[in-house]
Design a protein around this nucleic acid. Structure first.
Lengths: 190, 190
DNA sequence: AACGTAGTACTACAGATGGAGTGGTGTCAA
DNA sequence: TTGACACCACTCCATCTGTAGTACTACGTT
């Protein structure tokens, strides 16, 4: 088992791309080697089993989908009203959609987690933490709405992103924009 | 190319189970043969290529997820108010969740459609039709809400089902129930 | 400065699996 | 008798895993 952390991370990031492009079943040691442009057999040295590889990717993927510190700091600026809320949600949708392969990889992981209990445990923990962080962040922000509105937005925007990434012709960009606005507005009305 | 329609349908239904259980990459002719309990090589005789198999599954899967006539008829009964709307949405979520493998297979197909243009075209058409049917049905029903509320409900409930089926420990059954109610209630408030 | 050692990169191979595609044979019904 | 289909068998091919073994590099020791 090799320990070089940069290389390990490079392999995991390569695995994310493979997941998005080839699907869960296509995530093999060899495919990761090829994607990371390292000699065949390298991934075998860094992960004990495929299960291990999946689990480590599951631990990493969420870090890369979350906003960085600068983005979080920026989100606290300005009037914290509904207009600002909508603005932030547009940013969120665009940021996540932009890391196309990351979101698709996460979907693949979700589906794979129905077959891998370890992976399911990792993902459940990460996502539960993310939802709670969103709720906490919202509560501290002064933005309108309650816990329920945060969760409803989480639900609607996630599927909107799925729709955009998997079947882009279902909604136009214009419609997506309007749906984000509508989701913000209506989720706030208790 | 064989034409026996019962057998073809049995093969496609078997393919749905394989998709849900093994993922898109696991959908092979041989796996379909095994699932349908027919001799190896049979699926090869019924589908020209794997692409063809995917496309035919994409055409069929949606039929099986939609409510049957009796359910649709029943949905028109009673007072068409918000309470009734929530009731119908609970039924919808439960019905779709119950056909577990069907919904998971559809997710696999969505992901696979990022790699298969033909499949994407089929799914886009089907899903667009379904959304439009929902909108039309809603408009004719006398239920409260507008087009936007129908679409927002579609978004939120879809992801709720994803959450329930892929990571069942994120939300409790109780929370899911409440979220459906909240989604109905808030989506109606323009 | 020479040497030794540890950790890692890289290469190569053995063994195994599983699937695609196809041709052929048997069976049944019109 | 003929045609469609079920069933079976075989070959070719692509890939993957696991691991053993070699080469390289950095670093500490004397």
């Amino acid at each position: 088992m090799r320990r070089n952390p940069e290389r390990r991370q490079a392999l995991i990031d390569a695995a994310i791309e493979v997941l998005a492009r080839e699907g869960a079943r296509g995530l093999t040691f060899r495919a990761v080697d090829a994607e990371a442009a390292v000699p065949p057999g390298t991934a075998s040295n860094y992960f004990t089993t495929r299960d291990d590889l999946f689990t480590q990717v599951g631990g990493r993927i969420y870090e890369r989908l979350l906003p960085d510190e600068a983005t979080i700091a920026r989100s606290r600026e300005g009037m914290q009203d509904q207009t600002r809320y909508a603005e932030l949600m547009h940013e969120l949708v665009d940021r996540v959609s932009a890391f196309n392969s990351g979101y698709l990889a996460l979907l693949e992981l979700r589906l794979e987690s129905t077959r891998r209990p370890e992976l399911r445990a990792v993902l459940t923990k990460r996502i539960r933490e993310d939802i709670d962080a969103n709720i906490g962040h919202h509560a501290a922000s002064g933005l309108p709405g309650d816990t329920t509105s945060v969760v409803l937005l989480y639900l609607a925007l996630n599927w909107l992103i799925v729709e955009r990434l998997t079947l882009p012709d279902i909604f136009t960009e214009q419609e997506i924009h309007e749906l984000v606005d509508a989701a913000v507005q209506r989720s706030l009305n208790a």
